[in-house]
Design a protein around this nucleic acid. Structure first.
Length: 305
DNA sequence: ACTCGTCAAGCCGAA
DNA sequence: TTCGGCTTGACGAGT
């Protein structure tokens, strides 16, 4: 099992998702920003390896306006060596990475323009994994999308659109159960139609479910991943922030709840993304717990600092 | 130098 | 009808 956290490292003095306003776009500025973002990404990965955190969600903003028509800079070829360097580092240290395209990627929208832009964004993010030389075990994670007042139609539209996606996207695309609209059961129906893996979110499942116990839900989600093609199951982990709005992530890892969650794995072997506000601080604590329980993968080269 | 409204993109649902 | 929230800040105009 690998532990990770999303997008932002709060310990380092750099960011891998630096961007700028569309109005101030220039090729020069794009070139500079991408260069700095990739350099920082490598630093974050090095930090993570030193702490035993081998899973990381790369922010969508590595290449600002990566799928926007304003950006005609040939960043794929211009930064081929830098992307390759990052990918080589990931492979050399047995790391796993993912992307989570933001809420504007809606494959089941009835608006053809939204679908078109969504696909372009998925192609952009998938192409970064290609440039890194990473295989289809590194994933692009999205939600099913909107309801539009008709769940059946919404699911059907997702399936129809999925079947039209380029192979470079479908090889890596996974769907995540969400906390309000599309449950694990809904995702399983999409999976049954097109064989897409389900990225399980324990907290969302607590917010929206059909009574499946956690252990059963984990088994169901795990069964949608083909080890050869997809690698081991990915999941997002969080818990409710005490005293806050329902669905709000906790600000730091609550160890008792995390340990309790681990008892439901029962043979399931997920890589776990901690969606917790304090990022690498909690991730480090989770790594220590896995080491203590003998669940960390691979065996630590050195104990966490 | 610092603040703070706003930033490419969508959707739901509470207020 | 507006607005907060969502995986996540930080750009940059105005002072």
């Amino acid at each position: 099992m690998k532990i990770g956290y999303p997008c932002v490292n709060e310990s380092l003095d750099c960011t891998s998702t630096s961007t700028f306003r569309l109005a101030s776009y220039s090729d020069e500025r794009l070139e500079l920003t991408v260069r700095n973002n990739l350099r920082c990404l490598l630093r974050i990965l090095e930090f993570n390896v030193a702490q035993g955190m081998l899973f990381f969600r790369i922010g969508s903003g590595i290449v600002p306006f990566g799928s926007h028509p304003v950006n005609t800079f040939p960043w794929q070829t211009h930064f081929a060596a830098e992307f390759r360097e990052v990918g080589d580092y990931i492979k050399a240290h047995n790391m796993r990475v993912s992307f989570h395209p933001d809420q504007f990627v809606v494959l089941n929208s009835p608006d053809a323009g939204i679908v078109e832009r969504s696909i372009a964004e998925l192609v952009y993010q998938g192409s970064m994994l290609d440039l890194m030389g990473l295989d289809s075990t590194h994933k692009l994670q999205i939600h099913v999308g909107g309801l539009y007042g008709d769940r059946e139609l919404a699911i059907t539209r997702f399936i129809d659109t999925y079947r039209r996606l380029p192979a470079a996207v479908t090889a890596r695309l996974v769907i995540e159960n969400d906390d309000r609209l599309f449950s694990l059961q809904d995702c399983l129906r999409v999976h049954a139609a097109v064989d897409i893996p389900i990225l399980f979110d324990n907290f969302h499942h607590e917010c929206l479910n059909h009574g499946e116990p956690m252990a059963e839900a984990l088994q169901l989600a795990a069964s949608t991943w083909h080890p050869e093609r997809d690698g081991t199951m990915m999941m997002d982990y969080s818990s409710q922030a005490v005293g806050e709005r329902k669905g709000k992530h906790t600000s730091s890892l609550i160890e008792e709840l995390f340990r309790e969650f681990l008892t439901h794995l029962q043979g399931v072997n997920p890589d776990i993304m901690l969606e917790i506000k304090d990022k690498e601080i909690s991730a480090r604590r989770a790594v220590a717990i896995l080491h203590e329980l003998g669940l960390a993968s691979p065996a630590p080269q050195s104990l966490p600092i």
